[in-house]
Amino acid sequence: MTSDTIVLRRAENSDALPAADVWLRSFAAALPTVRRAHEDTDVRDWFAQVLVPHYETWVAAAQNSVVGVMVLHGAELQQLYLDPEWRGRGLGDRFIALAKERRPDGLALWTFQVNQPAHRFYERHGFIAVERTDGRCNEEQEPDVRYTWAPPERRPVGDTGSARRHAGS
């Protein structure tokens, strides 16, 4: 099955637990050195009680299973996680295209500094690193990076969208 056979759609209440399970599997695979701040049951409750009913939550559905999840809130791309078996198949690219379509004025997100594959992925999609922190302000207490994306017509003249480090990096 290819990413072309996957449907991206708004999450329904029944998608909350499968989406949470994708998040849990993906986090474990992509971030093995990062301490999770919440137990599995808390993550599932967060999806069921907060993300799906109150945020713009999208899922990638393959037949009857959820293989990816994306959460938008305002101009913030808050979550983008793929089932580990679905990484590298273009599904993340489709989610980013959808996020840009849904937020044409720009997007921002945080990712952990140790997640180099995520850095490469977001930079390939025109996101720019604008801030780095020591992790004191996130629940995992893990150093992170703030990325932003603006459509080409909103970038300063001469800005190609390549990644830059801010002062102090």
Results as ranks from 00 to 15, higher is better:
residue 130 V to K: 03
residue 118 A to K: 00
residue 113 Q to T: 08
residue 111 T to C: 13
residue 113 Q to G: 08
residue 119 H to N: 07
residue 113 Q to S: 12
residue 121 F to Y: 05
residue 115 N to S: 11
residue 125 H to M: 10
residue 111 T to Q: 05
residue 126 G to I: 06
residue 127 F to L: 15
residue 121 F to S: 09
residue 124 R to I: 09
residue 109 L to Y: 01
residue 105 D to L: 12
residue 111 T to D: 14
residue 118 A to T: 01
residue 122 Y to P: 00
residue 127 F to N: 06
residue 129 A to Y: 00
residue 122 Y to E: 14
residue 126 G to L: 08
residue 127 F to Q: 07
residue 120 R to I: 09
residue 109 L to P: 02
residue 116 Q to D: 10
residue 130 V to F: 06
residue 103 R to T: 13
residue 102 R to A: 15
residue 131 E to D: 09
residue 115 N to P: 02
residue 123 E to S: 08
residue 106 G to M: 10
residue 127 F to S: 10
residue 107 L to S: 07
residue 103 R to E: 15
residue 117 P to Q: 11
residue 105 D to R: 03
residue 111 T to Y: 00
residue 118 A to I: 03
residue 128 I to F: 02
residue 109 L to N: 03
residue 107 L to K: 02
residue 122 Y to V: 09
residue 126 G to S: 07
residue 117 P to G: 12
residue 108 A to K: 04
residue 110 W to M: 13
residue 108 A to G: 07
residue 120 R to M: 13
residue 129 A to H: 01
residue 128 I to N: 08
residue 106 G to P: 02
residue 105 D to G: 14
residue 119 H to F: 04
residue 121 F to C: 10
residue 106 G to K: 08
residue 127 F to I: 11
residue 108 A to S: 13
residue 119 H to D: 13
residue 122 Y to H: 05
residue 112 F to H: 06
residue 131 E to H: 06
residue 117 P to D: 13
residue 108 A to D: 11
residue 128 I to W: 03
residue 112 F to Y: 11
residue 114 V to P: 00
residue 123 E to A: 14
residue 116 Q to I: 05
residue 107 L to R: 02
residue 119 H to G: 10
residue 107 L to G: 06
residue 120 R to H: 12
residue 109 L to K: 01
residue 119 H to P: 01
residue 130 V to Q: 08
residue 119 H to W: 04
residue 115 N to Y: 04
residue 122 Y to T: 07
residue 128 I to M: 14
residue 113 Q to V: 09
residue 104 P to A: 14
residue 125 H to W: 05
residue 126 G to N: 03
residue 129 A to G: 08
residue 126 G to Q: 04
residue 116 Q to H: 03
residue 121 F to T: 05
residue 107 L to V: 05
residue 112 F to V: 05
residue 112 F to C: 10
residue 128 I to Y: 02
residue 131 E to L: 12
residue 109 L to E: 08
residue 115 N to G: 08
residue 112 F to R: 03
residue 132 R to A: 15
